[in-house]
Design a protein around this nucleic acid. Structure first.
Length: 927
RNA sequence: GCCCAGGUGGCGGAAUGGUAGACGCGCUCGUUUCAGGUGCGAGUGCUGAGAGGCGUGCAGGUUCGAGUCCUGUUCUGGGCACCA
């Protein structure tokens, strides 16, 4: 019987399906373990070999944990809403659901061929109404909640309303968009619409005017993490800044907890650092600068309270509401023109254009520390969205202020002793303060750090401002002008938004005739007929963004068919959180922030028991493509081998990697590849081969370097694919896919099979294993166990290869070795292990290897037999010690120990360890 | 500019501070075969006839001993960025 993966793999997959061996129970006396993959967006291109990398790793870990006796939850599903299906729908008219379902089916069949141990009965898709009911439900709860900053938790909005009724905004602890102030009487005097608008200031899901990333080409707004360098991540279209009235989530209220929660997580430092960066905590002070001759007060935020004596001007963001309030009549026209001009620029244009620009508003502000009048400017280098949208400018110690001051010829006052600001600003927070003495505050002579603290204290005492922590993290814009997303459970009555009743959820996505925006520029849902409540009220036309459905999906897997709750209480108390989450770093500032926020909100609500969703997170690296090139001699149809091309003037051309093997081109296949190459000529190298050049690039169709896992499975089998992906290198590292070398892994599996069968002869018997056999086995148990725990799968594959070579040489046929060996391999190569379990080890069809026990390590097999040697130098015997049996006693005497130096340091000390090279000692370790 | 990773043979990559290059690919030689392929055996960092010498981006340091720890530097990959 030869190893025949093409025959055994589909059969065993069917066997697992039929026996439901991967079905997981929610109540078990066994300890739980939850292993999760970041679920994929099913794209039209299908899976390439890079996608399963993380899935294979998590599958190995799941299978390992199962063999260790854990009840393992290991599910899979699909992030089904997304732009590509909608873009495709706009181009072709095909319903995005059809596209999505087709893609899902393709993914599913590709995944099944690889032999994952998913419990498919828990499969979910975000576009399923039974699922998005709970996305809508959570949104609704966010609308009905506010963030209590004193309790540091979300609370029902009704509690806030009660407070407003009793005390107005007096003594209110709530995270708000702006600082609103009104009395209880004023609240009571408001009409329904005014109240609704006021409450939006505090709701966790709120409608607000906010600066959004508007992408005209996609016709929708985008979240910050969907934009990079002023271009949309999907498609690379320019993005503009625009104020829009949109649904938002008050993620910023959770900034502190999102930051602090990172401490308790077992994530890589770099990922935590990226999140800290994104959350961007900065401690500083908010200060009030009165505008001379007006009752307007400019609030600014600064981290450098020590530099207030160096303020020589103020700057407002063009979008700041202060601009209109402070601009004097004679400057109004110039300021208006400037604001208009910046509005027309996209964010990208603003960033590329580093030229200093701005306009004087005509107003002067009063420095609260020394009473000096300073001019107020407007300039686009100040961001509206951060802090208060206004800054105090200290040109001596901020490079941006410095550039502005130079351009407008404004004074620059150095505040640190001995620094030269004639060429550039001094931005470092070090040195001794000077020029900083006002009527009641003297910072001169202090270190910057102390000066900041002293200035903050003074500001608080005098009521000039307050100490404040600012976060860079913004609220998430939650509306998309799209069709293919979750509808909001929202309707409008007299211009006021209301939530549908829970009994009306899910609100189904309606059918529409065209997926383009409506003729009057409204989102596609405006085309839906009867898109209204039973009472005839208009429903929300926007849909939710992609991250809505992916924020709480891990909870749904625990209890996927529950129609009463997102997740049942008892079930949630059992599964709690994800013990191991595997996915790419590209979600560091998107999904992994939103999901933590969403979970924390549900935790505040009492809907889930854990405050953090993902205990341990491992980032798998990306698999890049390895492209091949042929070299065409210019103006000919002749191609020259890569090692011969020096002599010619050539153009490199991408060639399909599937017709190249070990960088050698199949020239016949190349002629057949495309019509224009049908009569191609070749200049071959000395070995009569056509050698291709290669480069590491992104895996993509246009580079002809996409490798489909189906092809690998068909040719070598899923077990070879699984092992090879792991063998390629460390899991966390990005690396190019290179099919060269896969033969080695395939050979290993054949050898592995060869331990159990020689031709048709079964080799396994009940012979007692030799000490050598047991040593080989237990070396492997030790190595593989610690490697799996440490996610070092590449080295465990190598350990298998060594072990199988040893056992083959030892002619080991003992069941006592070969049975645990199959169990050890089963997480990595489940098909071959399961097949041998049945046909070579004699287990019946009711006994799957999945239910076996992970072999126990017996260290006693690993102890090397040893012999006592005397170590001597300078003719005197000094030590007696144990050494491996293969050390040669004669040579032991000629060691480093004979040197003068060794004699000095070794005397009177205890020896802990002796390092022996066969034949001689190289070193002695002291204890 | 700031913050992370990381530089080891022809290649992917191994090395609790203790024989650097495990394992695999590739390559060389032998063997099996009519032959190609496969299988099997031996070899494969550089240098040297050999003993040996030199080797983990570069320069220092700690240590009996450094790829590993420390300082500086340089290059590569990734993230963030008018964030006051």
């Amino acid at each position: 019987m030869l190893y025949n993966p093409q025959e055994i793999e589909p059969r065993l997959q069917e066997y697992w399906r039929e026996k439901k061996v991967y079905k997981v129970d929610n109540d078990s006396s066994r300890r739980k373990f939850y292993v999760l993959d970041m679920f994929p967006y099913p794209s039209g291109a299908g899976l390439h070999v890079g996608h399963p990398l993380g899935y294979i790793a998590s599958d190995i870990y799941s299978r390992y944990k199962r063999l260790r006796g854990f009840n393992v939850l290991h599910p899979m599903g699909y992030d089904a809403y997304g732009l590509p299906a909608e873009q495709y729908a706009i181009q072709t008219g095909q319903h995005p659901e059809k596209t999505t379902v087709d893609n899902i089916n393709r993914y599913r069949s590709q995944l099944e061929k690889i032999g994952f141990s998913y419990d498919w009965s828990r499969e979910l898709r975000t576009c399923d109404p039974k699922y998005y009911k709970w996305t809508q439900w959570a949104f609704k709860r966010m609308f009905e909640s506010y963030y209590d900053t004193a309790a540091d938790a979300a609370r029902p909005i009704s509690e806030l309303v009660a407070h407003l009724e009793a005390h107005g905004t007096e003594g209110l602890h709530a995270a708000g968009s702006r600082d609103l102030e009104f009395t209880a009487a004023e609240w009571k005097a408001m009409d329904a619409k005014q109240r609704s608008e006021a409450l939006m200031n505090w709701r966790i899901a709120y409608l607000g005017n906010s600066m959004v990333n508007w992408c005209p080409a996609l016709g929708t707004v985008l979240a910050n993490d969907e934009v990079s360098e002023g271009l949309s991540i999907r498609g690379g279209f320019p993005v503009e800044q625009k104020v829009m009235y949109q649904w938002c989530l008050r993620v910023s209220a959770y900034a502190g907890r999102l930051l602090e929660g990172l401490e308790r997580l077992d994530w890589t430092d770099s990922l935590k650092e990226t999140q800290r960066n994104w959350i961007g905590r900065s401690e500083g002070a908010e200060m009030h600068f009165a505008v001379d001759g007006s009752d307007v007060v400019l609030d600014i935020f600064t981290t450098r309270a020590d530099t207030v004596f160096g303020v020589t001007f103020m700057v407002l963001a063009p979008e700041s509401e202060y601009v209109d309030k402070v601009t004097t009549p004679e400057r109004r026209e110039a300021v208006r023109a400037y604001v208009e001009a910046t509005k027309r620029k996209t964010e990208r244009e603003r960033m590329i254009d580093k030229k200093v620009s701005g306009e004087f508003t005509g107003a002067y502000a009063i420095n609260p520390l020394n009473g000096k009048r300073v001019p107020v400017y407007v300039s686009d280098y100040v961001l509206a969205g951060y802090g208060t949208g206004a800054i105090m400018a200290v040109p001596a110690h901020d490079s941006r202020d410095y550039a502005f001051a130079r351009h407008f010829d404004l004074p620059i006052i150095p505040l640190i002793e001995g620094v030269d600001v004639s060429e550039q600003s001094f931005d470092a927070k070090t040195g001794k303060v000077t020029n900083s003495c006002g009527p009641d505050l003297d910072l001169n002579g202090m270190e910057v750090k102390d000066a900041i603290a002293a200035a903050k204290r003074y500001i608080e005492e005098k009521g000039i401002g307050r100490v404040k922590v600012n976060y860079r993290l913004r609220d998430a814009i939650f509306s998309r002008q799209r069709y293919w997303g979750e509808p909001f459970p929202v309707y409008y009555k007299d211009g006021i938004p209301y939530m549908l009743d829970d009994s009306q959820l899910p609100l189904l996505l309606p059918e529409i005739s065209s997926y383009k925006p409506s003729p009057d520029g409204e989102p596609p849902l405006a085309r839906a007929e009867n898109w209204q409540t039973a009472e005839g009220y208009r429903l929300e036309l926007n849909t939710m963004p992609g991250f809505a459905g992916s924020s709480a999906y891990y909870l749904r897997y625990m209890d996927p068919h529950n129609n009463e709750a997102l997740v049942g209480k008892e079930v949630n108390e059992y599964w709690r959180d994800v013990d191991l989450y595997i996915g790419g770093t590209e979600h560091a500032t998107g999904h992994l922030i939103y999901s933590r926020f969403w979970n924390k909100f549900l935790y505040d609500l009492g809907a889930v028991v854990e405050d953090e969703p993902f205990r341990k997170l491992v980032n798998q690296g990306m698999i890049q493509g390895r492209s091949n090139f042929v070299y065409r001699i210019k103006n000919t149809n002749t191609f020259v081998s890569a090692d011969m091309r020096e002599a010619y003037d050539t153009t490199p051309i991408h060639v399909d990697v599937n017709i190249v093997s070990n960088d050698v081109l199949d020239t016949e296949a190349f002629r057949a590849w495309r019509p224009e190459y049908a009569d191609a000529e070749f200049v071959l190298n000395a070995e009569d081969k056509y050698l291709c050049g290669w480069a590491v690039e992104k895996m993509s169709k246009s580079m002809f370097n996409v490798v489909n896992p189906d092809d690998i499975v068909e040719r070598y089998g899923a077990d070879t694919l699984r092992l090879y992906e792991m063998f390629l290198g460390p899991l966390e590292q990005s690396k190019p896919w290179d099919t060269n070398g896969i033969d080695g892994v395939n050979r290993f599996l054949k050898k592995f099979w060869g331990l159990y069968f020689k031709g048709d002869t079964l080799l396994v018997n009940d012979a007692e294993p030799t000490a050598e056999n047991m040593r080989s086995l237990h070396k492997l148990i030790k190595k593989v166990t610690s490697d799996i725990e440490g996610f070092s799968f590449n080295t465990s594959v190598a350990a298998f290869m060594i072990c199988v070579n040893e056992l083959t040489q030892q002619h080991c046929t003992s069941r006592k070795v070969l049975e645990p060996l199959a169990v050890l391999l089963s997480p990595f190569a489940p098909h071959i292990a399961e097949e041998l379990w049945h046909i070579a080890l004699g287990h019946g069809s009711d006994d799957s290897i999945v239910a076996a026990q992970w072999p126990e390590l017996d260290e006693s097999y690993l102890v090397e037999s040893s012999v006592n040697y005397a170590v001597s130098f300078n003719g005197k015997t000094r030590f007696s010690m144990a050494m491996p049996a293969d050390a040669d006693a004669k040579d032991v005497e000629q060691t480093v120990l004979t040197s003068e130096q060794a004699a000095r340091w070794i005397e009177g000390k205890t020896i802990r360890k002796v390092i022996v090279v066969p034949g001689k000692i190289v070193n002695v370790v002291l204890g």
